[in-house]
Design a protein around this nucleic acid. Structure first.
Lengths: 136, 136
DNA sequence: CTAGGTGCAAATCCTTTGCTCGAAT
DNA sequence: ATTCGAGCAAAGGATTTGCACCTAG
């Protein structure tokens, strides 16, 4: 049995935490630091890639921001604040019948969809400035 | 009156053409070449940025591929083939009531949404290999 | 004459990879 | 001894910016 990366468990724990909904690689790196883990960025990169490949973690693509990662689980979509990059999970937005119908009409085989709607979060609307960094 | 870029008209004409549904900057550059226009990449970049800022052109963010650009117009969503990067317009997938409801619940002010569903196009399903480049 | 469009080149950002060393089996 | 994981460093790719020039108004 091959050794597993020491980073797997801390990263999964991190993603399971509730402070942030989804984490960029940089977010992960900074949080691990608070636990005296200072792995190289490439190590985090490789571990997360592996988790994504195993389907244990989802990659969320954002407009104009590095991708975020979340634990795989019940499907949901996201709202993304384009000012502060806050990401909020919301119930599925595209009814499967609509999506399936569109895909079928074009002959597409769909992957799991992952919809991100861009907008401005309440905080940024009020402050006219980005929400301060969330504490890790 | 300031001079307008000479590239605006050819680019808009290009985007209005039907060969491709949406174009990357590189696609645009290559097509312009066939008309003996060899502008610098940065010039195309700046003109397209400008058109996007003016709302005349939409930027479509894709997973793992450079953004595509299309003329602004009637709203629609997209299917994206992750093998050959084909992009197909389909009718709106997220009913406004669902999206608005989710946004409202979170206090988000939504931009125009732009949903991309990733999948595999019919051609790539059959061939098990990416569709050859479309002619410009 | 002046504003601003253009090209060239370089900086930047983020992602990804090669390679070596060290630790666990 | 062998097999990876980890760290370091550097490549790569795409995007973005600074700057000087040139041309249309």
């Amino acid at each position: 049995m091959a050794r597993a990366s020491k980073l797997i468990e801390p990263i999964l724990t991190l993603l399971a935490g509730s402070t942030r909904h989804a984490w960029s690689l940089e977010d992960i790196r900074q949080d691990l630091r608070t636990r005296d883990l200072t792995p190289d960025f490439s190590s985090i990169f490789r571990v997360v890639e592996q988790l994504v490949a195993q389907g244990r973690v989802n990659r969320i693509h954002l407009a104009d921001a590095p991708p975020r990662f979340e634990l795989s689980g019940a499907h949901h979509d996201h709202l993304h604040c384009t000012l502060c990059d806050l990401l909020v999970p919301v119930p599925c937005l595209a009814p499967h019948n609509l999506a399936d119908q569109a895909a079928q009409a074009q002959g597409f085989a769909l992957h799991a969809h992952n919809i991100v709607l861009d907008g401005v979060c309440p905080h940024c609307q009020l402050q006219r400035q980005p929400r301060p960094e969330l504490p890790a």
